[in-house]
């Protein structure tokens, strides 16, 4: 049986430790952003704190506030971030690919290139590539 006082003394430390972890994730993303050679690699580094770091901070807030109402208000934060982070990452990656802002030698497989070639080679007006990607 754990004493209530022990729990009360541990919770702030646990919350603070979670904050340090989240800050470390942000620093990892920043270092990746600074050190990686091209935008698509930097995009990979940038997505680290978006979900995991935010989840850690939200858990820290829940530990600190210790209230069900606060927890209910925090759930939408994670849900919205889970919904929107892949969208923005997809759009940024798409823009980066189409602008050629990456080193083709760094790719093991470029599956999109074959599709782009197939789409631009078609006789259809506009081509399937344009119709699909243009929306």
């Amino acid at each position: 049986m754990i004493e209530a006082e022990t729990v009360a003394s541990i919770l702030p430390i646990a919350a603070a430790a979670l904050l340090v972890l989240a800050a470390a994730l942000t620093l990892a993303a920043a270092i990746g952003l600074w050190r990686f050679p091209d935008p698509l690699s930097r995009l990979h580094a940038a997505t680290k704190p978006q979900i995991l770091g935010l989840t850690l901070v939200v858990i820290a807030i829940a530990l600190s506030a210790q209230s069900a109402a606060v927890l209910l208000m925090l759930v939408p934060v994670i849900v919205f971030q889970l919904l929107t982070a892949p969208i923005s990452a997809h759009m940024v990656g798409r823009a980066g690919y189409r602008n050629g802002d990456f080193d083709p030698g760094s790719l093991e497989v470029d599956e999109l290139a074959a599709d782009v070639d197939a789409a631009t080679a078609t006789d259809l007006p506009g081509g399937a590539w344009h119709d699909e990607r243009g929306t």
Partner: peptide, 19 residues
């Protein structure tokens, strides 16, 4: 991408300030 990370960091810092 950098401004996106900056905004994410802002969200984290706002949360940390609450704690």
């Amino acid at each position: 991408i950098a401004s996106d990370v900056m905004l994410t960091t802002l969200i984290l810092v706002v949360g940390a300030e609450m704690v």
